[in-house]
Amino acid sequence: MATSSSLLGSPVDAPGLEGRVSRLGIALLRIVVGVTFLHEAAWKRPPEFGRDTGRGLWEWSNFAVEYPVFLPYSWFVEYIVQPNFILFGWTVFFLEAALGAFLILGLFTRLTAVVCVFQSLAITFSVLNQPVYSEWDYAYYLLIGANLAIIGTAAGRHYGLDAALRPLWQRSNGRLARLLLRAS
């Protein structure tokens, strides 16, 4: 087991990955997935999020209704999302910004990656059958798989902020600290 101290905290608290190359590899995967989410956040444009022009987030979420992939999700978009579209837009605006930033930094990583899996599923259920834009289906499957790997390896404990935070949470007595230990 590696016992040397990393840049941010100790790897001792991160079982399952041995050797610097493995730990650097999973950290790099986490950062690339984070950059993907942060990059994609940029085109969620308030205050209308494309509802006034039929483009942007409105167009992409509407694909779930026009070209259904998973009928319960299409129903959810048509009857829950679209009537409350501005609220949905702001939720996506903050969610993707936070998911990207937290994955890049390795902060609350396991919880963040779980949310990323659901977000990736929502995107997949929206766009998989749309014929308008040329999309590579496997990109969405890869995104889901990458986030599952991040959850499984607790990737924030390798060159991430979780590595510095976990020893502090372990010393605390509070319920929040115990929850954050599970989230990291």
Binding site: H39, A41, A42, F93, F94, A97, G100, F102, L107
Partner: peptide
């Protein structure tokens, strides 16, 4: 800024 810039400041701030 854009939503990405929000993430750029949100991450270090929360961290």
């Amino acid at each position: 800024g854009t939503a990405s810039t929000v993430g750029f400041h949100l991450g270090p701030g929360v961290g």
